[in-house]
Design a protein around this nucleic acid. Structure first.
Length: 418
DNA sequence: TCTGGGGTCCTAGGACCC
DNA sequence: TCTGGGGTCCTAGGACCC
């Protein structure tokens, strides 16, 4: 049996842990640049505040102090997530961290009664130790566990089991097709045009039809809904395949120089992430775009891809490559609103093919240099040492206005009790 | 003049997830 | 006026090989 443990309203719940007064209030957490709503408290959801909506739609609610807003604080959320995972580990089951607020667990050799008991004690322990409420769905496959979790969210106990065929059949009948894990916006539309409205409707189709319309992923989904497990627990050791860093700018950028500074900063951050995972990249993609919502000017978006002759995790190399890529897609006199970089095609830092013409000696030298830089930045303030290409005064960064403290990861920001 | 059949690898784009 | 960010998987088509 698979269990899906999912934190309720995760980001706003994290804020509540350190700010109990928020309980039963309308609270939302905002995206970068304080632009869109990316998390809502229960009360906010009940009052019809939509996911992904721009916050300026709710200006009057904020002015009247009915709606409390937070800038996102991912340092805090990631740390709380870690703590929840630690608690889950104490139950000694195979586990897959599926996202910042979800984990799949796999239990065999347990009776239904034991599973029920287990789920209740998990929920209780996580709340007691971390202050985070969770919902748990349990069933025969991951897709059914997801479905059970959705039902659990609405139930008073916060836990839902789908064990026998009648229970499952009923659940499928009452589940809208768009609520099935694996059916997104496009497929939903397609399926509805084919008169498929519920999960039950989907599993009643024949395999060939499903594969033709939804590819093998859709076929897997429907097999899973029928109770046949096709999606295994992901191995924890599976390594990451790409690193993306993208931002919308607070001020639009026009000059090549400004854009280059922003991109170089993105490169520097992604390279740091890459080194942390002891990986090297051989592929880079850069993209830039104007504002999608700017109706006055024509929309421009472009990307440029690059395969390096050798794998690297050196910021210096990557900044040079990024510069080459950016030159290909940059057009003058345009107001850019968004940019990003993607690194991929990874290999291990110790096992890789070197460039035939570079000397191992210079490689070692570069390695020592970058390790030293990382060390300094870790010990001292962030960005004590950085590359000139990143620029001294970023013109695109914004200062979040309503950010809570790093209560759990910074000595200077520990919660104070007065 | 007439020109086969069986493969692999790579990539862009489109779907999905949180 | 103000509109997010980070991932994975699958497929078709093009390039290549023998």
């Amino acid at each position: 049996m698979f269990l899906l443990v999912d934190c309720n309203n995760f980001y706003t719940s994290c804020e509540e842990v350190f700010n109990p007064k928020l309980k039963d209030k309308m609270v939302v957490v905002l995206s970068n640049n304080d632009g869109c709503i990316i998390a809502r408290s229960k009360k906010a959801k009940e009052n019809g505040i939509g996911m992904g909506e721009p916050i300026f739609n709710y200006k009057s609610l904020i002015d009247r102090k009915k709606l409390i807003i937070f800038s996102s604080n991912f340092t805090l959320y990631a740390d709380i997530s870690q703590r929840v995972q630690q608690v889950l580990l104490t139950f000694d089951l195979d586990m897959e961290i599926y996202s910042i607020d979800e984990a799949f667990l796999f239990a065999d050799m347990l009776s239904q009664d034991q599973l029920i008991k287990l789920a209740f004690s998990m929920k209780e322990k996580i709340y007691k130790w971390c202050g985070i409420p969770v919902s748990i769905g349990i069933s025969k496959t991951k897709t059914l566990a997801k479905l059970a979790n959705k039902i659990a969210k609405k139930s008073s106990s916060g836990i839902c089991f789908l064990f026998n065929d009648t229970e499952i059949k009923n659940a499928l009948k009452n589940t809208k097709i768009e609520d099935v894990w694996g059916i997104g916006r496009k497929y939903q539309k397609k399926l509805k045009s084919l008169s498929i409205f519920t999960a039950k409707n989907l599993i009643d189709q024949n395999d060939e039809f499903i594969k033709k319309n939804l590819t093998v992923s859709g076929l897997r989904t429907s097999l899973e809904l029928r109770g046949k497990s096709c999606i295994d627990l992901e191995d924890i050791t599976t390594f990451q395949k790409s690193i993306l860093f993208s931002r919308s700018f607070s001020n639009k950028l026009t000059s090549f120089f400004d854009l280059k500074e922003a991109i170089s900063t993105f490169v520097s951050s992604s390279a740091k992430k890459l080194r942390k995972q002891k990986m090297m990249a051989r592929y880079m993609s850069i993209f830039i775009a104007t504002s999608y919502f700017d109706k006055k000017n024509t929309f421009y978006a472009n990307s440029s891809h690059l395969n390096f002759p050798f794998p690297t995790y050196f910021t210096s190399d990557l900044i040079k490559f990024a510069d080459m890529a950016l030159k290909k897609i940059y057009r003058p006199n345009i107001e850019y609103k968004r940019a990003g970089i993607l690194l991929g095609n990874f290999s291990n830092e110790n096992i890789f093919q070197m460039d035939l013409f570079s000397s191992p000696l210079s490689f070692e030298k570069k390695k020592r240099l970058i390790k030293a830089i990382d060390k300094i930045n870790q010990k001292q303030k962030k960005r004590s040492v950085f590359f000139a290409a990143e620029g001294l005064n970023p013109k695109w960064e914004n200062t979040p206005i309503n950010k809570s403290c790093k209560y759990t990861t910074s000595w200077d920001e520990l919660p104070k009790i007065r």
